[in-house]
Amino acid sequence: MPASPTREPVREPGVDELSATVDALVQLSFLVQGVLGRMASEHDLSLIQVRLLGILRDRRPGMLELARLLGLDKSSMTGLVSRAEKRGLVRRIPSPDDGRAVLVELTDAGRELTGRCTAEMDGEIATLTASLTGAERAQATVLAGKILSNAQVGGAS
């Protein structure tokens, strides 16, 4: 079956294409980090605190899992959770499976702040992607998911 005249043939990316991809992804990363940084600042949070709250939106991980997800060592993780605890955003609870371990969960205040931050981020991303069609947004989601999945399998973070 002949190739469609409106589509370019599939080919391995060359150096120029790879450079363009790297450049676009790095610039997109900077854009998203800038949005997160502004949002964090408006709520007197650090970026790592925003990441912590984001992780805790839908789970109650242990300290070791949190440290792994955030790429922190044990003492840094303990300090991060302690600061969030002092602000009333998280609490530590005993693990039902291991008497020596603790889980970390959002408090009501933490859940409320996380909900506000999520809504703000949703609004910012909606504005940034307003020029995309629904199909393009879906494609961007699929492609980002593939990149993230590959990074998890390959060990990149």
Rank of each mutant, 00 (worst) to 15 (best):
M1I: 05
P2Q: 01
S4T: 10
S4L: 14
P5L: 09
R7N: 08
R7K: 14
R7G: 00
R7Y: 12
P9W: 00
R11A: 15
E12R: 12
D16R: 10
D16Y: 08
E17R: 08
A20W: 00
T21I: 11
T21Y: 08
A24K: 11
L25H: 07
F30M: 11
L31M: 09
L31N: 04
L36G: 05
L36K: 13
G37V: 09
R38T: 09
A40G: 14
S41C: 07
L45P: 05
I48V: 15
R51F: 09
R51I: 00
L52P: 00
L53D: 00
I55R: 14
L56Y: 10
L56K: 02
R57T: 06
D58L: 06
R59W: 00
G62R: 08
M63K: 14
M63A: 13
M63D: 11
L64W: 07
A67V: 05
G71H: 03
G71R: 03
K74D: 11
S76F: 05
S76P: 02
T78W: 07
L80A: 10
S82H: 14
S82A: 15
R83L: 08
A84H: 08
A84Y: 04
A84L: 14
A84D: 07
E85S: 15
K86N: 03
R87G: 08
G88T: 03
L89N: 05
V90S: 04
V90K: 02
R92F: 01
P94V: 07
S95E: 01
P96R: 15
D98V: 05
G99E: 14
G99F: 10
L103G: 00
V104H: 03
E105T: 14
L106V: 01
L106R: 00
D108V: 11
G110A: 00
L113P: 05
L113Y: 01
C117E: 07
A119M: 04
E120I: 13
M121I: 07
M121R: 02
D122S: 09
D122Q: 03
G123N: 02
T127G: 14
T127A: 15
L128Y: 06
T129E: 01
T129V: 05
L132K: 03
E136C: 03
E136R: 05
A138S: 13
Q139A: 15
Q139Y: 11
G145M: 10
L148V: 12
N150T: 10
A151V: 02
G154D: 12
